[in-house]
Design a protein around this nucleic acid. Sequence first.
DNA 1: ACGATAGTTCAAGAATTATTGAAACATTAG
DNA 2: CTAATGTTTCAATAATTCTTGAACTATCGT
Lengths: 129, 129
Amino acid sequence: MEHKDAVTALTALAQTHRLAIFRLLVCEGLEGMAASEIAATLGIKPTSLSFHIKELEHAGLVTSERHGRSIRYGVRIDGMRALFGFLADDCCQGRPDLCGAAFSRSLGTVGACTDAATTNPQKDTSETG
Amino acid sequence: MEHKDAVTALTALAQTHRLAIFRLLVCEGLEGMAASEIAATLGIKPTSLSFHIKELEHAGLVTSERHGRSIRYGVRIDGMRALFGFLADDCCQGRPDLCGAAFSRSLGTVGACTDAATTNPQKDTSETG
DNA sequence: ACGATAGTTCAAGAATTATTGAAACATTAG
DNA sequence: CTAATGTTTCAATAATTCTTGAACTATCGT
C-alpha cells in the first residue's frame, strides 16, 4: 500500500459515523449487515449512510452485495489488512518496542464486540463540561 | 482508547502532509527532528507545518521539545500504541485470520525507513493515467 | 539593546466534506 | 402494470479544513 492509498483509507475511518460503521461491520463478520440495519443501529439517516458507506467502499474497506431488495455490507479483510500492514511496516519498522505489543495483544484477546462497537457513539456524549 | 479519541488520531493521520510527517518522525526515532528540517525534507511551508504538526500533537501522536532556537518533534510511542491497540482490539477482536498476519509481520520485518518515508509524497505523482 | 534565526499565531479566502429532503432507481408482491 | 420497500443520486446548504502572508514571540550572538 502506498502513501496515497493509506491517506484514503485513514480518511475513510477518520469520521465518527464511518468508524462506527466499520466497527459494527467487523463485529458482524462475514455475514455482513443490511444498510437499513446499520442505519437503524447507529441512528444514521439513509442518505447519510449511503454517503459514508460509499467512502468506506471506495477506500477498499467495505464490500457490498445485493440480497433481494436490500444490500448487505461487510468488512473487506484484504483492505483492512493492507491498511494495518502499512501502519505496522511503516510505523513500527519491525520494532516490537514501538508497537508490537499492541498488535500481538490482539492475537490473544477476544471480546471486543460488546456494547462499544454496536452503539451509536454520537449519543455517547455523557460529558457535562 | 475511546471512539472519539480514535477518530481524532485517525483524522490526524488522514492527511498527506501529516502522514508524511508522522512517517518521517517514526524513522527518525527518539532523537526527533527540528521543525525546519521536517519542513525542508517534505517541502512544506513553515506555517503549514506548524498547523499540521499541532494536529498531530493534539492527537497525542507527536511530542515537542525546545532545543535552543529550534523545536524538535518526535513520535509519541504511547499515542501510537493507543491507536494501533484500538484498531487491533476493536477491528481484529483477537482473530489472527482477520489482521494478525499483517501485524505479526512487523515483528520480524526491518527496513521501512528507506526512501518511501523520507520523500515528499506530493511530488511522488509519477503516474501517467 | 540590536539584529538574525526558528516557530507560532492570526485572519482571510479557497477547497473539501457532511447533512438533508426530494426525486429517482431497483427489486419484490400482487 | 401498480404499489410498496430499500437504497442511491442530486442539489443546496452548512460546516470544517487547508493554505498563505503578515505580524508576533522566543532564543542566540554580539
